[in-house]
Every structure is written in structure tokens, then in C-alpha cells.
Design a protein around this nucleic acid. Structure first.
Lengths: 350, 350
DNA sequence: TTGAAAGCGATACCAA
DNA sequence: TTGGTATCGCTTTCAA
């Protein structure tokens, strides 16, 4: 099957073999190519025989747009982030694109990254980490490249965002804790949290204020000095050292929650007996026997779908107004804050 | 700074502004371009003024090679895999490449994936999942694209592999269990394990045979019907149901180990009191308070470095003989198989 | 529907 | 060291 030529099979080779022009070959492999059935068949036969494959570099150069989508990620060691990436990869591939993935540490890196994305004439950019700098966005707009941010928000015209429904999440968590009889409620977040974490905290606070003014007044905000599991764990130690007590706690993400739970265990306290705890993210780890953490579940698949929808629709009409897609979340009840019939006060009385 | 032109700034624009030829611009941005300091300065000034950026698509088309490296991944939900991807991304970016990441489920997908990689004229392919099909490799060789596999092996000429040192890992684990006084030793793996898992098991078995014939004869091989955490957990249940007992167990990966440990806990048994357990991978989770699992640590950073080294060296000389890079591993002692002075028999006697 | 031809934007060879 | 030019492989008018 392989030609004796040194280099790759080109459209011209196929055209020669099929006895048609190279333009006909191109049309055969294009969506709206006007080709007669007869020509198409000849071309497809020849292409198969030669093992022809479109050169995406040449195609992209000509169309000023490649079948590439740039994805900005960070801290893949957080299971939720890798889960999200997995969802995005699936959706990107399902739609025939390829993912250009970059891990980014700081703002400057983000800038360099997006710049390289434009150099590849990507069909879209998905930012899951960092705030897209306004200048770069302008550059993308100049190249007519759609940009979408996930679990973050900024009032940038022409840039869409898709975020989990942090307000509903807060409501579900608050209701659940209240229903379970929690009296002194806490909120745990990392001091330099992401937009998502901050928003979740604000929503939680507002929900309490609106529905349980008394609890709201007592709301304890715990600020972890460190991010991730260790941050949560140390926050628990700190809280214990200060003699602070809460009987219900809501956490900005899964790692903080697992860490906090373990930190409390180190002091001999455990959920659901001594307190209830609800996390955010529903990563696989939260379901494991050693944690069985109740959490607010984010729907990564739906998130990925909507992100790609934003990209594709904006590619067709760049003048669209900014959109904010809110993805539904759900409460997954597990051991650390079980069914409401099983309240925290009953347990304490035992 | 931005030109009034609708489209992007090209080398010709820079050349015009700098008063030189477009070839001079190209040379200025190329490694071994012979340009006078004077010309270079003029060009750089003009380029900065216009905000010129090389079009990678055009560059790649001409050079028959893009600054892209294809990475094949799978099951990013396994923390070790996302850790490895993170390491690869860092190394790829550090060397000025961009990562084209594809998640792949089965063999056909792998084929389609690698095919698309060649269509982008990638500078190299890294396979972290699945066995690179021989035909595809041929195709890569035809395009002169280097291929490297991670934590897998096959006797394919011209394809390099970099693997963790599974033999040393087995030795470290075996020594540690023996030193701790374990008498009936077990090996846990998934029934359709990867090459890495299988190799670890074989090495473990051989080490025992060579150094502790008596233990080798008693070696219990536990075969999980399912992969990951749940596989390990169910294997523990199964073992308990069958009345099987082991006092030291070595596991093919971190998830299996965590699952097995939790499964045993559900039956009221825990490490290190009732048995010792050593995992593989040293993912962040294994360090957490609820597990504190002793494990064999894989060095993802070194693995990534060597993978890129293989790619780059083979890009220079495609005729190199196949290389197998063995990356050192280390034993991380934690709670589930603590310092040897603290043996399993002593504990049982307490 | 078809083919001829003009790009897309950069590189590299060759002569000066 | 320079600039002119052919080339990389495909897409897309424009006539026919």
C-alpha cells in the first residue's frame, strides 16, 4: 500500500491516481464540497489505496484555523482538576478536535501560553486556571478565536464562562446541615482561594443569612493557610488548638474537606458523630470507605459539553453577547452528613 | 502597536518595516541563522513594534515538523496517571514544545490518535497507555517521528521505553516485609493488569524465590476482578470470605492498595497491627492520614526527563538501537509497614 | 461539477 | 551576510 516516495502522500498523488484534479480531492474531504458521486468514489478509492491523510498543518495554514483547541490547566494533582480535564478531552475529541494542553503556574506563563495557542491558530481556548488577561483576550478576538473560562468569571465582553451552580450548592449544603440539627456552622476555605471557592463561601453565607439568621450570626469562617489536603488538616489542628467548636462544616473543595476530616480524627473527633461535614467536587476519593464524604457534586461532563458549545457557537458568530452558563449541581449524601432523619443531636445524645 | 491590517502580522510586514528581506526576518528567528548584528537589531525592533509572532502552522508545514509532541493518556482519574501527565507537560513545555494530549480507551482509538498525531507532523509521540500497534509505529518511522513508551515494553526496533525499576521495587518491598517478620506474604494485582503491574508481580515472585524460598512457596497471589480502588476493596472482602490470611501484602499500584486496606478495615482488620501492606506509586493520597501507606515511589520527573531525552536524541539519529531506560525507585516507609524495628510479630504479641 | 491558478506564511537553497 | 525564489500541501475563488 505504501508508495515508494520518501515523503508523505499528498492530495496531488491521490488526484493523479484517480485521474482528477487536486481540487476535486480537496472537495471530497470537505464538508460542503460539491463533487459528483462518481468523482468522489474515484477519489476515495485512490485515497484508500495510497493511505492518504490530510496534512493538518497545510490545511490550517490555508484556513487560518487549525483543528486544535487550547486548554489551560493547573495543579493536576487535585483529582477534581484531572477529572475536569478528562471530561474536556473526551468532549474535544468527540467533536473532532485535538487538545493542546498547557499547565500554567502564574499569570506570565498564562500569557505566553495563550500566545502560543494563537500561533497555532487554535479554534478555541479553554481556561480552567488563572484569570485570562484582558490583553490576551484582545489578541484572541483579533484572531477571531473564542475563549471560554471554567469555574471562574470576569466581565469581559465576548468571553463566555461556564460555572457550577454555587448558589444551589450552598443552599443544598445549608439545608442539609440545618436539617441535621447543626447549630454552630463553619465554612472552610483556603485564604487565597480561587473564584469558585470564594463564590461558594459568599453564597453559603447569604443563604444562611436569608434562611437561618441565627446560624448566620454564629457562622465561623475558617481560613486555611495552605491549599489542598494539608491545608484542611492543619486548619483542623488550628481550630482544635484554639478551642473553637463547630458541629457542621461546609468546605470549598474536596481536598480541604478530606484534610479537615483527617485533622479532626487526629484529635479523636470524627464525622458524623462529633460533627457533620460537607465537601465540594465529589472526587472519587470522597466516595472511598475511609472518607465517605457528603459532597456537592459538580457535573464535569455537562461542564465540558457547555464549554465546547460556547466555543462553537461563538466561532460562528463572534459578536454574541457574553454568556454565563450555570451547570446544575447535586448533593451526594454519604456518611459524614447522612440522611436527615439521622441528626447530629440524636447522635450526641446516644 | 497593532497594525491596521485585518489579519495577523507576517514576516513580510516585519521585513518591510525593517527595510530588509523576508529571508532575513526568518533567519533572525532561527537558531543557526547567519545574520549581522545590525540586521538582527533592525528586525527585532520592527518585530516588537508590530507584535510579530511566527505562524507555527506555516513553519511546521515547511519544516515538515511542528513543535508539537503527542501524548497518549488513559484513565486520568488514577492519581498516578495525572501526576505522570503533569510531569510530562512540564518537561515538554520546558523544552519549548507544546503537548497534544489524547485520551484513549481502546486499541482502535490509539490507532486513530497516532494517525492524527502524524497529520500534525508532531516531533515525537509519548505513549503512556496501550501498546503502540506495530503498523502505526511503522507509519511514525516513515515520517521519521520518534516514539517512546512509558511503563510498558515491547521489542519494537526504533521505539524506546522508559520504565520504573520494578525489580528493585520488588526487592525493597520483599526485604521490608521479611524484615518486619511477615510469614505469609501476598501479592495483589488486577486480573487484566498493565505491563507494569505484571512485571512488578513477576519480579516480586522471583525475588522471593531467590532470597526466601520458604516464603515464595507460600506466596498468595490475589487477583482482583476489578481495577482501581474498588478492585482492591472487593479483593479484600473476597479474601476474608474465603478465610484466607496474609500478614504482608505487596500491591501493583496505589489505588489497589488503598482499596485493599479499606476492605480489610471493613472487616475490622487494619495495618500495621493485623498485617503489613506496601503499595506502588506513592500518589499524594497514600500519604494522607487515613492511609499513611508505605509505598514504592516512582520518580515521575525523572521519567518525563528521560522520555524527552529519548525523543530528542532519536530525532537526531533515527537509526539508534532501541533503548530501555530504567528509572530508580525508592521505598517510602509509612504507617502500614513501618520501620523494621517495629515488626509485625511484636505487634501481634502485644 | 470541474480544473487552473492564486494564495496561506515561513524556510532554505542559491547566487551575488 | 544578504535577497530572490521555489517549495511545503492544501483551500478556494474563478471560469469554463
Amino acid at each position: 500500500m505504501k508508495s515508494t516516495k520518501q515523503s508523505a502522500v499528498t492530495a496531488q498523488d491521490v488526484a493523479d491516481l484517480a485521474g482528477v484534479s487536486r481540487a476535486a480531492v480537496s472537495r471530497t474531504f470537505t464538508k460542503n464540497g460539491s463533487v459528483s458521486t462518481e468523482t468522489r468514489e474515484k477519489v476515495e478509492k485512490a485515497a484508500a489505496q495510497l493511505g492518504y491523510q490530510i496534512n493538518f498543518l497545510a490545511q490550517g495554514l490555508n484556513r487560518k484555523r487549525s483543528m486544535l483547541i487550547g486548554v489551560v490547566v493547573a495543579r493536576l494533582s487535585d483529582p477534581f482538576r484531572s477529572q475536569l480535564l478528562e471530561g474536556l478531552l473526551n468532549e474535544i475529541q468527540a467533536r473532532g478536535y485535538q487538545a493542546l494542553v498547557t499547565e500554567v503556574g502564574n499569570a506570565e506563563e498564562l500569557e505566553a501560553t495563550i500566545r502560543r495557542f494563537t500561533q497555532f491558530r487554535v479554534s478555541g481556548v479553554i481556561v480552567t486556571s488563572g484569570q485570562p488577561p484582558i490583553d490576551l483576550i484582545k489578541e484572541c478576538i483579533h484572531f477571531n478565536i473564542p475563549v471560554v473560562g471554567i469555574n471562574r468569571y470576569a466581565a469581559i465582553p465576548n468571553v463566555d464562562f461556564v460555572c457550577s451552580d454555587n448558589v444551589t450548592g450552598a443552599q443544598l449544603a445549608a439545608q442539609q446541615l440545618i436539617k441535621s440539627g447543626c447549630k454552630s456552622i463553619g465554612w472552610l476555605n483556603y485564604q487565597y482561594s480561587t473564584w469558585g471557592g470564594i463564590t461558594r463561601g459568599e453564597a453559603f453565607s447569604q443563604v444562611l443569612q436569608a434562611t437561618e439568621p441565627w446560624c448566620y450570626q454564629q457562622l465561623v469562617t475558617i481560613c486555611a493557610q495552605e491549599d489542598g489536603y494539608e491545608g484542611g488538616r492543619k486548619a483542623a489542628h488550628e481550630m482544635h488548638k484554639n478551642g473553637l467548636k463547630v458541629d457542621g462544616i461546609y468546605c470549598a473543595n474536596a481536598l480541604l474537606a478530606c484534610g479537615f476530616l483527617d485533622g479532626m480524627r487526629e484529635h479523636g473527633m470524627d464525622a458524623p458523630n462529633d460533627f457533620h461535614i460537607i465537601g465540594f467536587d465529589d472526587t472519587p476519593q470522597t466516595a472511598q470507605y475511609s472518607y465517605r464524604l457528603s459532597t456537592i457534586r459538580q457535573d464535569v461532563i455537562e461542564t465540558a459539553k457547555r464549554a465546547l458549545w460556547c466555543l462553537e457557537s461563538r466561532a460562528q458568530d463572534a459578536s454574541l453577547l457574553q454568556r454565563l452558563e450555570v451547570v446544575p449541581v447535586s448533593l451526594v449524601l454519604r456518611n459524614t452528613s447522612p440522611e436527615s432523619s439521622y441528626s447530629v443531636t440524636q447522635l450526641k445524645d446516644k
